[in-house]
Computed example of a mutant assay.
Amino acid sequence: MKEFRYTVMDPLGMHARPAGIFVKEASSCESSVRLTKGEKSVDAKKIFGVMGLLVKCGDEVTVTVEGPDEAEVVMRLEEFMKNNL
């Protein structure tokens, strides 16, 4: 299992466009991917779960990846967040 934390810097938070792209990236991997904000954790491959977290600018989220391609996936998702959120 690998994970990283990220503080969202986008003034609009994790709105529809980046959330959709994030879900698409997470869905392209074999590993399970979870997105956590505070006490709530969701399947990062489900757009309604990700949008339901209501991630705003300044919120810290944790991405947890577990599975055979976890090392590659965690790097890819972290890079996506740095470039888009």
Rank of each mutant, 00 (worst) to 15 (best):
V74P: 00
S31P: 00
P11N: 14
I47H: 08
P18G: 14
E66D: 12
V50I: 13
I21N: 11
L54T: 12
S41E: 09
V8S: 11
E70N: 05
S27K: 03
N83T: 08
M14H: 09
Y6W: 14
L77T: 03
S31V: 03
V61N: 02
E60I: 05
M75Y: 02
E72D: 15
D10E: 13
V61R: 00
V73S: 05
N84C: 04
R34I: 03
V73N: 01
E70C: 09
C57G: 10
R34F: 04
G13P: 14
E39S: 11
P11Q: 10
M81C: 08
A16K: 06
S28P: 09
M14G: 05
S32D: 10
H15C: 15
M81K: 01
V61F: 03
L54P: 12
P11L: 15
L54S: 12
T62M: 04
R76H: 08
V50S: 04
N84Q: 14
E39Y: 12
T36E: 03
G49V: 12
G20M: 07
P11W: 07
M9K: 15
A19H: 00
N84E: 06
R17W: 14
E3Q: 14
E3D: 11
E78Q: 12
V33T: 06
P18S: 09
M14I: 08
V23K: 06
V55L: 08
T36P: 01
S32N: 13
M14S: 08
H15E: 07
Y6V: 14
K2Q: 14
F80S: 09
N84L: 08
L53E: 02
P68L: 12
V42Q: 03
T36L: 09
G38Y: 01
F80K: 02
G49R: 15
T62I: 03
K45D: 15
R76K: 13
G49H: 06
K40F: 05
G58H: 11
R5L: 10
V65C: 06
K37D: 07
T62K: 00
E60F: 02
E70A: 05
E72F: 13
V42D: 03
E78K: 11
M14Y: 00
N84D: 07
K45Q: 09
V8F: 11
I47Y: 01
G49M: 13
V55E: 02
E60W: 08
R17S: 13
M1E: 04
V74F: 02
E70W: 01
L77D: 00
L53C: 01
I21G: 10
P68M: 11
V33E: 00
D59Q: 13
D43M: 12
F80C: 11
V65Y: 03
A26Y: 00
R34A: 09
F22E: 02
V50N: 00
N84I: 10
P18F: 01
E3H: 09
A26L: 04
T7M: 11
V63L: 07
K46G: 14
K82L: 11
K56S: 06
R34H: 08
M51V: 04
E78R: 04
V50C: 05
K2T: 07
K37T: 07
G52W: 11
C29G: 10
T36H: 04
E79T: 15
